[in-house]
Amino acid sequence: GYRKEQERLGIPYDPIQWSTDQVLHWVVWVMKEFSMTDIDLTTLNISGRELCSLNQEDFFQRVPRGEILWSHLELLRKY
């Protein structure tokens, strides 16, 4: 899972600490993992702090059909 990727690349476990690059890395990883092609990366060119401050409605406004990303983010925030 993504935890291995975080360990390998030194990405903080807590998404709130992610840099913009780390947010984009996570988005690309999830897209590959779940064979998603319809995500516009430019809408998530934000820091982890900004990402974690979005509520579900705001998130889906930025990322239509972003349910998998949202669920994955929720999982990461719990651990």
Score class of each variant (00 low, 15 high):
G1L: 03
G1V: 07
Y2H: 15
Y2F: 07
R3N: 04
R3F: 11
R3P: 04
K4T: 11
K4F: 09
K4Y: 10
K4A: 11
K4E: 11
E5A: 03
E5F: 04
E5C: 05
E5Y: 08
E5N: 01
Q6N: 01
Q6Y: 03
Q6T: 07
E7R: 08
E7C: 04
E7K: 04
E7P: 01
R8V: 08
R8N: 07
R8W: 05
R8I: 06
R8A: 11
L9Q: 15
L9D: 05
G10L: 08
G10Y: 05
G10M: 10
G10T: 04
G10V: 04
I11E: 01
P12C: 04
P12I: 01
P12E: 04
P12W: 00
Y13E: 14
Y13H: 09
Y13Q: 12
Y13D: 11
Y13M: 14
Y13V: 09
Y13W: 12
D14I: 00
D14K: 02
D14S: 07
D14P: 03
P15S: 02
P15N: 03
P15K: 02
P15H: 02
I16F: 13
I16E: 15
I16V: 13
I16T: 11
Q17T: 13
Q17L: 14
Q17A: 11
Q17K: 08
Q17E: 15
Q17D: 15
Q17S: 13
W18A: 01
W18I: 01
W18P: 00
W18M: 00
S19K: 06
S19D: 12
T20Y: 04
T20Q: 12
T20P: 13
T20G: 11
T20S: 15
T20E: 15
D21L: 04
D21A: 12
D21E: 14
D21V: 07
D21H: 12
Q22C: 03
Q22D: 11
Q22E: 14
Q22Y: 02
V23I: 02
V23Q: 01
V23L: 02
V23M: 01
V23A: 03
V23E: 00
V23F: 01
V23Y: 02
L24P: 00
L24D: 07
L24Y: 06
L24F: 09
L24E: 10
L24I: 10
H25R: 05
H25A: 06
H25S: 06
H25C: 06
H25V: 06
W26S: 00
W26C: 01
W26I: 02
W26P: 00
V27S: 07
V27P: 03
V27F: 06
V28F: 09
V28G: 13
V28K: 15
W29C: 03
W29F: 06
W29I: 00
V30G: 12
V30A: 12
V30H: 08
V30W: 05
V30Y: 04
M31W: 05
M31H: 08
M31Y: 05
K32Q: 11
K32N: 13
K32S: 10
K32E: 13
K32Y: 07
E33K: 14
E33T: 10
F34G: 09
F34K: 14
F34T: 11
F34D: 07
F34R: 12
S35Y: 07
S35H: 14
S35F: 04
M36W: 09
M36C: 15
M36G: 07
M36R: 13
M36L: 15
M36F: 10
T37C: 12
T37M: 13
T37E: 15
T37V: 09
T37Y: 09
D38A: 08
D38T: 10
D38Q: 10
I39Y: 05
I39G: 07
I39R: 05
D40I: 04
D40Y: 03
L41C: 11
L41A: 12
L41I: 14
L41R: 07
L41K: 10
L41V: 13
L41Q: 09
T42Q: 12
T42L: 08
T42N: 10
T42F: 06
T42D: 14
T42H: 11
T42A: 14
T42Y: 09
T42G: 13
T43M: 12
T43S: 14
T43D: 15
T43K: 15
T43W: 09
T43Y: 14
L44H: 02
L44Y: 03
L44I: 08
L44P: 01
L44S: 02
L44T: 03
N45P: 04
N45R: 12
N45Y: 07
N45H: 14
I46F: 06
I46L: 12
I46P: 00
I46D: 00
I46H: 01
I46R: 01
S47K: 08
S47V: 04
S47R: 06
S47E: 11
S47F: 01
S47L: 02
S47G: 08
S47Y: 03
S47W: 02
S47H: 06
G48A: 02
G48P: 03
G48D: 02
R49S: 14
R49I: 07
R49H: 08
R49D: 10
R49C: 09
E50S: 05
E50V: 12
E50T: 09
E50P: 00
E50I: 08
E50G: 03
E50W: 03
L51W: 00
L51D: 02
L51S: 01
L51F: 02
L51N: 01
C52P: 00
C52W: 03
C52D: 05
C52M: 11
C52G: 03
S53K: 09
S53Y: 04
S53D: 15
S53F: 06
L54R: 03
L54K: 03
L54V: 05
L54Y: 06
L54A: 00
L54W: 13
N55Y: 06
N55K: 07
N55S: 14
N55D: 14
N55H: 09
N55F: 03
Q56D: 06
Q56M: 09
Q56R: 14
Q56P: 07
Q56N: 04
Q56F: 10
Q56G: 06
E57W: 08
E57N: 07
E57S: 12
E57D: 11
E57M: 08
E57A: 14
D58P: 00
D58H: 08
D58G: 11
D58A: 12
F59V: 02
F59A: 02
F59Q: 03
F59T: 00
F59S: 03
F59E: 00
F60T: 12
F60N: 07
F60R: 14
F60Q: 11
Q61F: 10
Q61G: 13
Q61W: 05
Q61H: 11
Q61E: 12
R62T: 07
R62A: 09
R62C: 08
R62Q: 09
R62I: 12
R62K: 13
R62S: 08
V63Y: 06
V63N: 04
V63H: 01
V63W: 12
V63P: 03
V63K: 01
V63F: 15
P64G: 08
P64I: 03
P64V: 04
P64R: 05
P64D: 02
R65W: 08
R65C: 14
G66H: 03
G66C: 05
G66P: 13
E67K: 15
E67T: 12
E67I: 07
E67N: 10
E67M: 08
I68Q: 10
I68T: 11
I68G: 10
L69M: 09
L69W: 04
L69T: 00
L69Y: 06
L69K: 00
W70M: 03
W70C: 02
W70T: 00
W70R: 04
W70P: 00
W70A: 02
S71D: 15
S71R: 12
S71L: 08
S71H: 13
S71A: 12
S71I: 08
H72W: 00
H72D: 07
L73N: 00
L73R: 02
L73T: 00
L73I: 04
L73Q: 03
E74T: 08
E74N: 06
E74Q: 11
E74K: 09
E74P: 01
L75S: 15
L76V: 07
L76S: 03
L76M: 10
L76C: 09
L76T: 05
R77E: 05
R77N: 09
R77V: 05
R77H: 11
K78T: 13
K78F: 10
K78A: 14
K78H: 13
K78W: 06
Y79S: 15
Y79A: 13
Y79G: 15
Y79P: 14
Y79W: 10
Y79H: 14
Y79R: 11
